[in-house]
């Protein structure tokens, strides 16, 4: 950071583009997916690219990987535009982890990681001691050294994803691009992988771009968010700022859903519950959660919650009732609804 030579790079971003037009060209037809896309991706930062399906996130990734060059504009990778680099030079700058299932087979984890050295080896693919050391280093960094001789088909989903990240690391590129690395992973592995990436960005000074739909994990781990939606070009900023400014609402187009600024969760837009609820904040929150899921219920006039032991007292117009759990109350209210309907008939 103190090195003045690093300064302009840090201000500009290692990967940058302005006013890109993204899309596909097939024959004479061009299909534009997004336009006016500008961004800067910085080293030592974990950036999450988010947005609804079909807005061109993958197209943006492919533009950075130069597999589908932008229709207009240039993506700069460090000091050179992507289109000016040879395949090999590009491979030394950008490593990827894709969503596509890799054909597994007899490949051992170490073999898989070693494939990442391909841009650095000679025509025969012979691994030099430097390559071997790099492979050992990235396997230690991602804590998969003990899996080295296991075949890829014997790994769990989380381990396989980590091994693929290690392969990308072995490519020794300043930029890493990952397409939904946490899909199919269990709850704790989602966090493990993203914290690993965050760690790698810091330790190995990488610019990491992750496409994810996982808002919870992104808010927790990302340094920057890039939000993409169908109408406007990319909106970038720190997750916290976007949350406060309301920019995050672009993730959920339409009126039906919104991102709840208090919890960082996506919730359904509902009118306030026509019912007075009192009690400890935590309990009230979860009760509201249950009631929002069942908007058809006719609610009591007031509900009082107490903890230790947990109890619910619901006041109806004529009487009041006690419940020991939320599901008990919901069950009672649903029953009321049924009998009510019965009477209406």
């Amino acid at each position: 950071m103190k090195n003045p030579e690093n300064k302009p790079e840090n201000n500009e971003g290692f990967v940058r583009a302005s006013d890109l037009e993204l899309g596909y060209r097939s024959g004479t037809e061009t299909q534009r997916v997004a336009s006016g896309v500008s961004f800067s991706l910085f080293r030592k930062e974990l950036t999450c690219l988010m947005g609804p399906n079909g807005v061109g996130k993958s197209t943006l990734l492919k533009a950075i990987m130069h597999q589908h060059p932008p229709l207009k504009g240039e993506v700069w990778l460090g000091n050179a535009p992507a289109s000016h680099l040879s395949e090999k030079e590009r491979a030394k700058r950008v490593a990827v982890v894709l969503t596509e299932k890799i054909p597994t087979g007899l490949l051992t984890v170490r073999d898989l990681v070693a494939l990442g050295r391909i841009p650095h080896t000679g025509w025969w693919g012979q691994l030099s001691p430097v390559d071997q050391a790099k492979i050992n280093e990235v396997m230690a960094l991602t804590s998969i050294s003990h899996l080295a001789h296991k075949t890829v088909s014997a790994l769990s989903d989380g381990q396989r994803q980590t091994a693929l990240i290690a392969r990308a690391l072995a490519q020794d590129s300043p930029i890493m691009v990952l397409d939904e690395p946490t899909a199919h992973l269990d709850l704790s592995n989602r966090f493990e992988i993203m914290y690993l990436l965050r760690d790698l960005a810091r330790k190995a000074s990488k610019a990491i771009l992750v496409v994810t739909h996982d808002l919870e994990v992104a808010l927790e781990t990302a340094d920057k968010l890039w939000l993409m939606d169908a109408r406007q070009p990319l909106l970038t900023g720190s997750p916290e700022d976007l949350m406060i400014s309301g920019g995050i609402q672009r993730l959920v187009p339409g009126q039906k859903w919104r991102v709840d600024a208090a919890s960082g969760k996506i919730i359904r837009n509902t009118t306030p519950l026509p019912c007075q609820i009192e009690g400890p904040e935590l309990l009230v929150g979860w009760l509201k959660n249950a009631l929002r899921k069942n908007p058809e219920l006719s609610l009591p006039d007031a509900i009082y919650l107490t903890e230790n032991p947990f109890a619910i007292r619901a006041t109806f117009s004529q009487n009041h009732r006690h419940f020991n759990s939320i599901s008990e109350m919901i069950g009672y209210l649903q029953n009321q609804l049924k009998t009510g309907k019965f009477f209406l008939k």
Binding site: S86, L98, E100, L107, P119, Q171
Partner: peptide, 15 residues
């Protein structure tokens, strides 16, 4: 060898 991971990975590794 790079093709073992499929075409997209191979291209990303400079093939």
């Amino acid at each position: 060898n790079a093709m073992l991971l499929g075409e997209t990975y191979a291209v990303s590794m400079g093939i």
